[in-house]
């Protein structure tokens, strides 16, 4: 039986919860996330269902990593702005966020980044479209996609804010 494998898979930023669910399903099936690289996930064999995986958009932060390790989580690695952690199921429940406010703050971080990159693409796209290169449409396409992503993040945030009116 194979001991390790690599899977190529693409998730959009706004699908981070889908990505997390998929990684946990892999762990349920005996494949534990070992490291991440661009659009690729490297797994090793594990006892099915012994680990939980969590991911979070967080700027590079050594302090945060050691804080997480202090609480019993293992740092798997980072890809772009995303940090991946795992924790043994027997060491207790594993969540990164335990209240609505911090979930909203996380979505805000993601939204802010999408907005910056989206606006940059829009500006470059418009500049190129009227310039000599005529390649501006690529940036405009990117900007459209990022704005769509921003809409998806905003939708998730609105649902949480509604909840926040009644609970914390």
């Amino acid at each position: 039986m194979e001991k390790s494998m690599t899977m190529r898979k693409w998730f959009w930023v706004w699908e981070f919860d889908k990505e997390e669910t998929w990684l946990n399903e892999m762990a349920m099936n005996g494949w534990l996330l070992e490291s991440v690289s661009f659009a690729a996930y490297h797994f090793v064999r594990c006892e099915p269902g012994t680990y939980s995986i969590r991911l979070e958009m967080h700027p590079a932060d050594e302090e945060y990593v050691s804080f997480m390790e202090e609480t019993g989580a293992e740092y798997i690695g980072r890809m772009m702005m995303w940090m991946y952690f795992r924790k043994k199921v027997e060491d207790g429940p594993f969540d990164l966020f335990s209240d609505i406010d911090s979930r909203i703050a996380h979505l805000d971080r993601i939204g802010k980044l999408l907005q910056i990159v989206g606006v940059a693409n829009l500006v470059i796209g418009v500049a190129n479209a009227i310039g000599p290169t005529r390649l501006g449409w690529i940036n405009l396409l990117c900007a459209t996609l990022l704005m769509y992503g921003l809409g998806r993040i905003h939708g998730k945030k609105e649902a949480l804010e509604k909840e926040r009116m009644l609970h914390e």
Binding site: E56, A73, P93, D95, L96, F97, S98, D101, S102, H106
Partner: peptide, 11 residues
């Protein structure tokens, strides 16, 4: 009440 690590760190 369970405090998750990310929530606690931010707080």
């Amino acid at each position: 009440v369970h405090l998750a690590a990310g929530t606690l760190y931010g707080a």
